[in-house]
């Protein structure tokens, strides 16, 4: 663990791969029903508890899906359609917080916590590895005082054992 570079590289590559997949997202749906479902699944059903407009059986959710279908047929983009619902219901109608303003906190904090967790894990592993190396074969040069004392104690105890139980 003297060289944290490979670990750092591994972490960066993993984070990069996850980020790439997250940014790219699933393949773009083609049919109108799929496009409606795609938009509806990003909207919260206003009359339900924690259900998307795509999943809710409520009549209002059905009417929202109809509205989305009509808006798509009228040539509106998914972002424009979402913006219309946000204008009426506020940003709480979006299932994912917006990537701006206070909503950014929800995106940044998990990444920061992940980074902090990685840093803590790295530190612990590093200290643990450093501790293990002390018990390994002695290096040249002066030995640490504590280890010398332990060794002396060990030798004394072994000698005592030999005296008590001669084989």
């Amino acid at each position: 663990m003297r060289r944290p570079l490979p670990w750092l590289l591994l972490g960066l590559v993993t984070a990069g791969a996850i980020g790439l997949i997250a940014l790219r997202g699933p393949a773009r749906p083609q049919s109108t029903a799929d496009r409606v479902h795609d938009i509806a699944s990003t909207l919260r059903c206003p009359v339900c508890r924690d259900l998307s407009v795509a999943d809710s059986p409520a009549p209002l959710a059905q009417q929202m899906r109809d509205t989305i279908a009509k808006d798509l047929a009228a040539g509106r983009t998914p972002d424009q359609i979402r913006a219309e619902f946000v204008a009426s219901y506020g940003e709480s109608v979006l299932l994912s917080p917006p990537r701006k303003g206070i909503g950014l906190v929800a995106w940044v904090v998990p990444a920061l916590l992940l980074a902090a967790g990685l840093a803590i894990a790295l530190t612990i592993v590093r200290r643990w590895r450093a501790g293990v190396s002390v018990a390994g074969p002695p290096a040249d040069g002066p030995r640490p005082a504590v280890r010398a004392a332990d060794r002396k104690l060990l030798e004394r105890e072994l000698a005592r054992l030999d005296e008590e139980e001669p084989l």
């Binding site: 206003p46 209002l60 009417q63 009426s88 219901y89």
Partner: peptide
Amino acid sequence: GSRTALAYGVYG
């Protein structure tokens, strides 16, 4: 189609 209710952001 509840278009007006949706435009007014009616919850309940």
